[in-house]
Design a protein around this nucleic acid. Structure first.
Lengths: 336, 336
DNA sequence: ATGAAAGCGCTAACAA
DNA sequence: TTGTTAGCGCTTTCAT
């Protein structure tokens, strides 16, 4: 079933049917009404692929993420999809599991499916990887790369502010030795978070102890491994900040296994504010990042970049908010 | 850039280029090699949309889920996507948030994008909702509907076995009053789980206490509300089984808030074995459902149904496995 | 206000 | 072994 068939039934041409479907004002109201009735009667659904073929616009945006198993991403995806569906667009999702080959392949998938733009939340990448996108003038939006470019926009999270809030909170509680369990080494977003932590310390006038800095991997196991190492230290910290909530979950599990109670013997702060972060016992104090705001920023960046393909993209910054729950408290005085 | 352009550069016809790309044996090896070189040199990527338009096959399967925020779904999606990408297919995802209108709309989206089949994990639906799919001969795979039909297959989870294992485990520990916090009311899959629980009780020779049956909503808050009600009972249960892990999480949170310790004062059993179920304290005893097996079954069902559109679809059953972790223990004797 | 027709990129039937 | 060509469904320009 196609427009021609509908046209035949309606006694008009397929051009008229097309005009009716697209709400062209050039059609006589009665004709339009008549055609609409036929369309409804036939349950006709037009095939947008034909339009894509003709004009190259697929009304689809690609989304590349590193780990859909990290609740942050499905939560983001939910809002991103919702906004796009509201605009009659679709999402082409690629979960690349932090594998460079999968990333390269996912870009090819995006190109094959003629996406109108790509949001790349993947872990680190060589600029070479995204070149095929740029070469074909596909708008690109990166996350936390903090650098826009021709045909490329960036949406970044204001971790500087969030981590500063968290450090200040810990400082006020009386913490002086604060550890940090970061993200995977070699990723720009890990560096961003680490530097945000360092700046936070500086702003509160605290000392940075290199032996209290550990890399993680944005997953539970990384957090757990790091806290084990941290507990071996001769002078362990009184509080631990982490690169994301999963890492904090791992830290809490490690602490529990080691018999260290949270928050009385150790405070813990996460980042992201994943939906499940308040079902842990105790509920996690964390740095909230609005998924909806982020999704909206990505869509905005995508649309802007599409319209200004030959110019520098935009740089949008998303705010953060410290959510004080129950994993932070005054440090127990070890000398009592 | 299209095949014609490549053909021009290679000094052959576009048909030859097409044959080379599709690995036809009809091309002389040297010609093929030559064409491949040109393709690589131009970074040419063929546009599969043209093929879709021509043959109606989009190499895309739709997946409709009720709540991507429930970790079960992203975990399933990861495997489902991985399998499909391996077959050079894509996934069109629709998260319907248990909204009937969103479900209806998602079906339309699937139809518009010319999917080759749909896996419907959505909550309950009227048969009327999926009629447009069937009318257009789009293969449908349902989950836990336990009923196949013309052009429709079903993949169901063997909750009967899983719940029986769990009840037997609790029985052996000495539990006699077991409560059940089910899924949302009115959903077939909720009924399936409830009946599986009832059968499990019967198999272990246990009594079903209607006052220990509560509906939930597959989310944390539903579990928490239910356990509160359960704790008001004059004779509370010694163990609680739940329709899924999120519900169990809610039950555990409610228990913690009420000062009831798990597992010593109350045993809890979940279902699904979500990745995070072992970071809770204590780690959750739950009924494991293999995502990979389920994803593979869905793909198999999809392909089978596509090949046998006019016949009855298949019915595939996925096994379950009780994972005993630390939320189950002997009941404390209340009379001591 | 409406219709005829070209053309998007690809594949397969048919021709050579 | 390779080339020519029709046609998938749609939109839009140009005619009427």
């Amino acid at each position: 079933m196609n427009m021609k068939f509908v046209a035949l039934r309606a006694g008009v041409s397929s051009a008229t049917v097309s005009r009716v479907i697209n709400g062209s004002p050039l059609v006589k109201p009665e004709t339009a009404e008549h055609v609409r009735r036929i369309i409804a009667g036939l349950n006709f659904i037009p095939n947008p692929l034909a339009t894509t073929l003709k004009y190259g616009r697929s009304r689809t945006y690609g989304l590349i993420i590193p780990d859909i198993t990290n609740p942050f991403y499905p939560e983001f995806l939910r809002d991103f999809e919702e906004i796009l569906v509201g605009m009659d667009h679709e999402v082409l999702l690629a979960n690349v599991r932090s594998s460079p080959e999968a990333l390269v392949h996912s870009i090819r998938r995006m190109l094959l499916r003629q996406v109108d733009g790509v949001v790349l939340m993947a872990s680190e990448f060589d600029t070479k990887v995204v070149e095929p996108l740029l070469a074909r003038k596909v708008p690109l939006v990166t996350i936390d790369r903090r650098r826009a470019g021709i045909g490329t926009s960036d949406v970044s999270i204001d971790f500087e502010d969030g981590f500063a809030q968290a450090v200040a909170h810990l400082f006020q509680l009386g913490h002086r030795r604060i550890a940090f369990v970061g993200g995977s080494e070699g990723l720009r977003t890990s560096r961003v978070r680490l530097e945000a932590f360092q700046q936070g310390l500086a702003r509160s006038g605290l000392t940075l102890y290199p032996e209290l800095l550990h890399a993680g991997n944005y997953r539970v196991d990384g957090g757990e491994a790091a806290i084990h190492a941290l507990l071996q230290t001769s002078d362990p910290p009184t509080a631990v900040m982490t690169a994301n909530d999963l890492t904090a979950f791992g830290v809490m599990r490690g602490l529990h296994r080691a018999g260290v109670t949270v928050p009385h013997s150790m405070s813990v702060v996460g980042a992201d504010d994943v939906l499940l972060s308040d079902i842990l016992q105790p509920p996690l104090t964390t740095i909230h990042v609005s998924r909806r705001e982020m999704a909206a920023a990505c869509v905005e960046a995508l649309e802007y970049t599409k319209e200004h393909l030959d110019g520098r993209g935009r740089h949008i910054r998303i705010g953060t908010l410290l959510l004080v729950r129950e994993t932070t408290a005054r440090p127990r005085d070890r000398h009592l």
